[in-house]
Design a protein around this nucleic acid. Structure first.
Lengths: 264, 264
DNA sequence: CGCTTGGTTGACCATGTTCAATGTTAGTGG
DNA sequence: CCACTAACATTGAACATGGTCAACCAAGCG
């Protein structure tokens, strides 16, 4: 049954505050958004393709996957949502779902009406900007997924995904192990591989001493090695954060006939 | 040399108005944003990977590609930007570029300071929301690119991309032919194929009477056939538009053990 | 127990890559 | 107008990454 609480949204405030400056008053306003807590069982859709929705889902506990599918019904996961994510904040401006959202485990979430989120955004410009920024970080992740699916081989792809999840779960302190309650089949949907090849790929990562992936748990054996294997640079995940460490060494290769950027 | 004009931004207003309600006053405010017009030659970067930028680029004429690359320097295009697009509106909230932007042809664009865009967004909540929505439509396209690269074969992928571009160039009236000033190599970077295989794929589309792609031009021979071959449903491009026609027939396949969506 | 779900492995196959050669087109200068 | 060049398109043959099919194993749970 639904219940009304406020503190559920504190992690959301923390998330927003990690990349956007918010006053105490603004933080409180977010915390006080009316929300309805709900739980959904594993393998069930929170949002179905084509649904028109009137609320966003803040993940309190569990794991959800955003997905789309091709004509044969083969799924492609386009994002994982972990606790602390507002899984479809974008729906505030695009209420017509063009992707589905599925719970991968029993997932607890807080439902917040678009009406309330929109009202808050309209009355608080900086909250509005924070929402926008939060969405754009998700888009930056999505952009990496295109590169992943398009230009990286199975091992690199898998390593990259593991790195992404490690950073998202752990923040600055990369966890030695973290819970990733996901089957190899679901990993296949995310990496655009087949379950069989996911298995072989995980075996390779294991045998190279990079990481051990089990049913509910990822063990990072060699973080540097895993990052290297995954061509991973966390910059895109921290793009919104206050400058802590400067950008890494990754630079665009110069293209033929190109010395300077835009010239007026 | 730079010049100061206002009317350059009218197409941007039209774009925003196509999905978001804006008052006459709001439209005018956008038009009056100070902008600096510039031109950049083909194959040069407008924004380089890692750049910290302080302006957004509105494409007036030409074609630009957003890209990222893997460690071997192989490029993956993640978006095309055509006239009418604000190529990096997202940079207003994430000024640290994690992807590059390259002109594919000689491209004319208007540069608008983040400062001005942000100020406008802060003072006009509905403009802020329109910016956010515009960005989320781009994200919806990106999401489709993940599916494209991940779960569709070469022919389907290519057809899907052509459909996307046709709709974006033509709006509701699908053009029989449209200018796409792009080489097969650049198509390869967008579809995550090799130039050689792009060539073979285009040949297949041609031989099946679906579309003819030449150096600067796409000729759509059979729009329905092309859409079908590309598993294309334009809903995601129009997600923000006023309801004109209802969603197509595309529905999520029911997954095992799933009858109803979220239950509280 | 036995059933179900997920993990593991091997053999064979297919889509798309790689390599390499040749054709085509547009632009440039004599 | 033609020769020359450079970039792009086209084609074929060999190859590789990952997919498909199929069998078997392991763990959790009624």
């Amino acid at each position: 049954m639904a219940s009304f609480r406020h503190s559920d949204l504190q992690p959301f405030v923390d998330r927003l505050a990690s990349h956007s400056e918010l006053s105490a008053e603004e933080r409180q306003a977010i915390c006080q958004l009316p929300s309805r807590t709900a739980q959904i069982a594993a393998n069930r859709d929170v949002v179905r393709l084509g649904d028109r929705i009137d609320h966003a889902c803040f993940i309190i506990d569990g794991l959800a996957a955003r997905y789309d599918q091709n004509v044969d019904g083969e799924r492609q996961t386009t994002a994982f949502h972990i606790p602390g994510d507002m899984a479809d904040l974008h729906s505030v401006v695009l209420p017509h779902a063009t992707t589905g959202l599925q719970a991968l485990t029993t997932t607890t979430f807080a439902m917040i009406q678009h009406l309330d989120l929109r009202a808050l955004a309209r009355s608080h410009p900086r909250i509005s900007e924070a929402f926008w920024r939060e969405c754009m970080i998700d888009a930056a992740i999505l952009s990496q997924w295109v590169v992943n699916a398009g230009r990286r081989n199975a091992k690199t792809r898998m390593a990259h995904l593991l790195c992404e999840m490690a950073v998202r779960y752990g923040g600055n302190a990369i966890p030695k192990k973290f819970i990733l309650p996901i089957t190899q089949g679901q990993l296949a949907e995310a990496t655009a591989l087949t379950p069989v090849h996911v298995n072989r790929t995980l075996k390779a990562l294991r045998e190279e001493g990079l990481a051990i992936v089990r049913f509910r748990e990822v063990q990072v054996l060699d973080w540097n090695g895993l990052q290297e294997a995954g061509e991973f640079d966390s910059a895109y995940l921290n793009a919104g954060a206050r400058p802590r460490h400067d950008r890494g060494t990754r630079v665009a290769r110069p293209q033929p006939g190109q010395e300077s950027p835009a010239q007026a």
